[in-house]
């Protein structure tokens, strides 16, 4: 009995596949999405990227009328999930959330994948790094801190915020270079993310952290740390008191951790246009804005073209910082 069922199923699925390949091609674009769409997240459930992906998926589902299922493909420090997005069928039924790591990992020789391995759809978020010190630190402004760093021997100051070669490490390196200092002027203490680094800052083990201000928010509000500046072109409306590097010390350096939606390469343009338009609606919706400002996440919009050039620019910037820090294999 099971044999017959299996054969029937195989036959019928072949028919479906054939009709999809020949007969139904032109109708595909109008019909899209005709079935549930998978949104791959390269990071674990419960994190910031996961949360952003879930709100985007829920709003896309409302707009396009098909379920958008968030699937957390973790492992390999993001490589596994990013690979899954890049190697999926470019039919619009698998899209994914790209994160800043895609412009970093290939410089370290961890993967072949780079921003150009994807069809960019939309940039949704960017969080600039802040410069935080402990509340017992003698430095009240970023200028004082920078002067002290310049005067101290290399490696005297210790900073943290993420692992070796992570985005906040590169932000520190970029800042040092912008000040004309060597990459190792401040020693990097690797940590398992921003939260443990902020704890160690409060415990007195570090001089500064360069994680984003939202990540440091709880400790800052507890009065255990303060933020001196952010490495962004403009102030964050939620943390109005924190100046930008340019305002505080005239250094025009900005970077950030970003999240955007992408699809496998060679996605049919009509599907890409439709998705980008839907994502624009998501971005403009009150739900998305409320959610992001609640968490303190910065919102930045970039359509497919802008997202693409944004990634290319960031990619070059990361490559430079990684070479300076001796992290690049390329």
């Amino acid at each position: 009995m099971s044999k017959i069922t299996r054969r029937t199923f195989a036959a019928s699925s072949a028919v479906v596949a054939a009709s999809a390949a020949f007969g139904l091609r032109p109708a595909l674009a109008q019909a899209y999405p005709a079935r549930p769409v998978t949104l791959i997240v390269p990071w674990g459930a419960g994190g910031g990227t996961d949360a952003t992906a879930r709100i985007v998926a829920a709003l896309l589902e409302k707009d396009l009328g098909q379920p958008f299922n968030v699937v957390n493909r973790t492992g390999g420090s993001g490589v596994v999930g990013h690979t899954a997005i890049a190697t999926a069928q470019p039919d619009g039924y698998t899209i994914g959330m790209l994160t800043v790591e895609i412009s970093m990992m290939h410089w370290q020789g961890l993967t072949e994948l780079a921003p150009k391995s994807y069809t960019p759809l939309a940039l949704m978020n960017e969080d600039p790094p802040g410069i935080q010190v402990s509340s017992s630190s003698p430095y009240k402004t970023v200028k004082e801190l920078a002067e002290a760093i310049k005067a101290a021997p290399p490696g005297k100051f210790k900073a943290s915020g993420t692992g070796q070669g992570g985005i906040w490490h590169l932000a520190l390196v970029g800042w040092m270079q912008a000040m004309g200092l060597p990459a190792n002027q401040v020693a990097w203490v690797p940590s398992n993310g921003a939260a443990p680094a902020m704890q160690d800052l409060a415990a007195g083990g570090l001089d500064l952290t360069t994680c984003s201000v939202p990540e440091a928010r709880a400790i800052i509000e507890a009065g255990k740390a303060r933020s001196l500046a952010i490495m962004a072109p403009a102030r964050n409306p939620i943390f109005k008191d924190v100046p930008t590097l340019k305002e505080a010390m005239g250094i025009d350096y900005a970077t950030g951790a970003w999240r955007g939606i992408g699809a496998p390469k060679n996605l049919p343009p009509e599907i890409a246009t439709k998705l980008t338009a839907a994502l624009k609606k998501v971005y403009d919706s009150a739900e998305f804005k409320d959610f992001m400002s609640n968490r303190g996440f910065g919102t930045v919009w970039g359509d497919a073209g802008q997202f693409g050039s944004f990634m290319d620019k960031g990619d070059a910037q990361m490559g430079e910082a990684m070479k300076a820090a001796g992290l690049s294999k390329a």
Binding site: T5, R6, F9, A10, T38, N69, V71
Partner: peptide, 10 residues
């Protein structure tokens, strides 16, 4: 629990 188990033939 929405674990994406493969559908395959059946």
């Amino acid at each position: 629990l929405r674990v994406p188990l493969p559908a395959g033939l059946l």
